[in-house]
């Protein structure tokens, strides 16, 4: 690990930080609304139905919200997983750990972008 040589390091730290903010501010409420509000009887089932989500999907900034919500925490997790593996005593594989962790986040970004723009 030579941080001085790696010019991309500040970018990944920045993405980690941005992802941390999104994970802190937006994930708890979204998780609760999506996963727990209906089973707990706090919200009508119709609020998460097919028709409801289709209606929400036609609003452009909802898609932007979803993009930010899903993509940035991936970079946050990639960064934390990378360092946790070092902390657990893992060494580099033949493929650099940076490439594996951040690469997964980049692939996730492309996939999420494709789904939001082209599929939905």
């Amino acid at each position: 690990m030579n941080y001085q040589k790696n010019k991309t390091e500040p970018f990944w730290w920045g993405m980690f930080s941005a992802g941390g903010v999104i994970a802190a501010l937006l994930v708890p409420v979204t998780l609760f609304l999506d996963g727990l509000a209906v089973p707990l009887g706090l919200m009508d089932e119709g609020m998460v139905s097919y028709e409801r989500w289709q209606a929400l999907m036609s609003v452009p900034w909802i898609k932007l919200y979803l993009f930010v919500l899903v993509v940035l925490p991936l970079y946050h997790a990639a960064h934390r997983i990378r360092f946790s593996l070092y902390e657990l005593g893992m060494r580099e594989f033949r493929i650099s750990m940076d490439v594996i962790c951040y690469g997964a986040a980049v692939v996730g970004t492309l996939a999420v972008g494709y789904v939001l723009v082209k599929v939905l």
Partner: peptide, 8 residues
């Protein structure tokens, strides 16, 4: 962070 990523 792993749970958050799994959820999103």
């Amino acid at each position: 962070s792993v749970f958050v990523a799994a959820f999103v």
